[in-house]
């Protein structure tokens, strides 16, 4: 049984892991930097302390962005697996990826140059596309049949297919440099973004995760089906609405800032569930923190392994996360529940 003390202890351990990973990754890169020089500050003349400039202008935003995206995708994965009662669910299952992708491709091909609240046109259009798609899928799911979960999943598949076709169409008529930008974005790419934009989005993701954490007891009950949960005092419609809205917003934030980083939202929740159990009161915060640490580490590998070139982080998440997950799977195979019976 999960107790409050156990949960607090485990969260503190997870936070310690995240801080160690962030500290290591902040110091790792093609340019060597030392903590002493960073602590000296910017210096009297701009550019006099290059190490400080790199740390504040490049490394810190990038590490924060990776942490933000990792936490959002892992947290969203936990929620969608719980609500859809489907272990194969990930943050992109309801078509949010193709919606964001379509938004981003339109921004690239149209050559938009505006900014909104500090966000680039690609970020803004991807965010709008992601949220619009979730709304369309939700509306279709509610409208079509009584079996809401199945129709939501099917609506997600259909909308995904349709928008993917539109992305392919637009990509095929795009200029070569536009096509390259699109492909790179679709592969998932954590690139430098301004610190204020990241901080604003960090607050949104943290608020979203806090809202989701507040309904985790209800998510435990919903694992037994909506009517059983209702008998235990849960309003299933209200909880599903909160869960879908909050997870859609944090996923949209992550996708609009980083493109489609796969694997984190699917595998991190599974790995944590294997090791610590399915209680969502624990699964959500620990998955978000470990998801953040995992993506920070993956992004550091992506930006250093073939330096000065950079790999899309999605390649690293799949290549490192896959084998790691298989090791966990083999070790905890007796504890697995969702493949049995």
């Amino acid at each position: 049984m999960l107790t409050q003390t156990t949960l607090i202890t485990r969260i503190m351990i997870a936070v310690a892991i995240l801080l160690v990973v962030c500290g290591f990754c902040l110091m790792t890169g093609t340019e060597k930097i030392s903590p002493g020089n960073i602590l000296k500050g910017p210096g009297s003349v701009p550019g006099s302390n290059i190490e400080y400039e790199i740390f504040i202008g490049v490394r810190l935003p990038r590490v924060l962005l990776a942490a933000l995206v990792g936490a959002a995708l892992a947290g969203s994965g936990v929620i969608l697996q719980a609500i859809l009662r489907n272990p194969l669910a990930d943050p992109f299952i309801l078509g949010i990826s193709s919606g964001a992708g379509l938004g981003a491709v339109i921004a690239i091909i149209a050559g938009f140059t505006f900014t909104f609240l500090g966000g680039s046109p690609i970020t803004v259009c991807a965010f709008a596309g992601a949220l619009t798609t979730v709304w369309i899928v939700w509306a279709i799911g509610r409208f079509t049949t009584k079996s809401e979960l199945t129709s939501l999943l099917l609506a997600g598949v259909v909308v995904n297919a349709f928008f993917s076709a539109l992305i392919m169409f637009l990509t095929s008529i795009a200029k070569s440099e536009q096509m390259q930008a699109t492909v790179f974005w679709l592969m998932g790419n954590i690139s430098e973004t301004s610190l204020p934009v990241i901080i604003v989005n960090f607050v949104i993701v943290l608020a979203g995760l806090a809202v989701l954490w507040s309904i985790c007891l209800e998510l435990n009950l919903l694992s037994f089906g909506e009517s059983q949960a209702q008998n235990l005092g849960v309003d299933p419609t209200r909880i599903k609405l909160i869960a879908f809205t909050a997870s859609a917003i944090i996923t949209a934030v992550a996708v609009s800032l980083s493109g489609l980083v796969g694997f984190v939202g699917l595998i991190v929740p599974h790995a944590i569930r294997l090791v610590l159990g399915p209680d969502h009161r624990q699964l959500l915060p620990i998955s978000a923190i470990i998801g953040a640490a995992f993506l920070v580490l993956a992004d550091t590998i992506a930006r250093t392994i073939v330096a000065p070139a950079q790999l899309p982080v999605g390649v690293i998440t799949a290549m490192t996360g896959g084998p790691f997950f298989l090791i966990l799977l083999a070790r905890y195979t007796r504890k697995i529940s969702w493949f049995s019976k």
Binding site: A82, P87, N220, S223, F224, G277, P278, S337, W338
Partner: peptide
């Protein structure tokens, strides 16, 4: 049977 592996004790505690 729920989608995820809750124990007997956890199930009753719900």
């Amino acid at each position: 049977v729920p989608a995820f592996g809750f124990t007997v004790e956890e199930t009753v505690a719900m």
